[in-house]
């Protein structure tokens, strides 16, 4: 593999946890709920998925456990913000604090443990015949592990769900104008709960990819701020699952560029390159907010609790 292809392949790997978390947050925000607990839910998924993977050696069970853990975190957020109408920003922060503590607590005995071989084997790169022969991109995109393919699939399915199915269009209505959606007898509470929980499950998957496949061993605070980058990526992707694919791999590339530049002739301090994803996130947010267009606007009901009596 030449330098470009291997760099792109590594960018896709590094972007996969971001992709799952971004998709999760897109679905959550489409329901009108701004959940800043992404980092916390990722960590909850990362630690529970890793622990179950370690105990059972079964990759499917590990993934399911991670999804469950992520959605339990989301459930706390859902009860607070949907049923009890608490402030969404602070509730999300609380979830991140809780999730960080939770993962450090559960993960205390896991430090230094490595992903079991059975799971490593399950997630080894598989070439897709035909597609993998596309020049440059083929090897980067289609000679990857099953988890990454699951990422492509999830993004595409969510995109179709959101724009092409009745339920997806209902969801958009709930996020844009819950009052009108309610009048059209859409069950607002059910839609919100279902999608906030689904969002949490996807964040959990993003987390477990880090601990089980990316590292692949347990280390404390394995997400290292990726959950927050995912929150920014949602804005970058303009709440569109297809655009999330591009954004996640772009940021995945930035995540690894510092490492890749070591040993080349380019001399920049590692610490400055490490700042890159954060600087670019800020730049992206500023640029998006500067050219405010209707198409890239957030759901109108985002962050506002819905209360039928106050309609």
């Amino acid at each position: 593999m030449d330098f470009m292809t291997s760099f792109l392949a590594a960018a896709v790997v590094a972007g996969t946890p971001l992709l799952f978390a971004t998709l999760g947050e897109i679905i959550t925000e489409r329901a009108g709920n701004l959940n800043l607990g992404v980092e916390g839910m990722m960590l909850m998924g990362a630690v529970i998925g890793f622990k179950i993977g370690l105990i059972t050696g079964n990759p499917i069970l590990a993934l399911l456990a991670a999804m469950f853990a992520g959605s339990m975190g989301a459930l706390i957020f859902a009860v607070l913000t949907i049923s009890l109408r608490a402030n969404q920003v602070v509730s999300g922060l609380a979830l991140t604090i809780f999730g960080t503590g939770f993962s450090a607590f559960i993960g205390k005995d896991l430090v230094g443990q490595v992903t079991p071989n059975a799971i490593k084997l399950f997630f080894k790169p598989l070439e897709i015949p035909g597609l993998a022969n596309i020049p440059i991109l083929g090897k980067a995109l289609f000679s990857q592990d099953l988890f990454i393919y699951l990422g492509y699939l999830t993004a595409i399915i969510l995109g179709i769900y959101l724009y092409k199915t009745r339920k997806g269009l209902n969801l958009i209505a709930v996020g844009e104008n819950p009052g009108a959606a309610d009048a059209a007898s859409i069950n607002i509470t059910l839609y919100k709960y279902a999608h906030v929980l689904l969002g949490g499950a996807l964040c959990g998957l993003g987390g477990v990819y880090l601990s089980l496949v990316y590292v692949p061993a347990w280390q404390e605070n394995v997400t290292a701020g990726r959950g927050w980058i995912a929150v920014a990526l949602v804005i970058f992707a303009a709440w569109n699952p297809f655009k999330a694919l591009v954004g996640a791999y772009l940021f995945g590339g930035m995540d690894i560029i510092g490492f890749r530049l070591q040993g080349t002739s380019i001399q920049i301090s590692q610490y400055f390159i490490d700042m890159l994803p954060y600087l670019v996130t800020i730049a992206v947010l500023v640029v998006v907010s500067m050219r405010k267009s209707k198409k890239n606007a957030p759901p109108k009901g985002l962050g506002v609790p819905y209360f039928r009596e106050e309609r």
Partner: peptide, 25 residues
């Protein structure tokens, strides 16, 4: 683990956030 204190912090914040419902309504 010291992380237990963080869980407790998160827990207190959850309950206080939830309780505000009963202050407002």
């Amino acid at each position: 683990p010291a992380a237990a204190a963080m869980i407790l912090e998160g827990m207190i914040l959850f309950f206080v956030l939830g309780s505000e419902f009963f202050i407002k309504y």
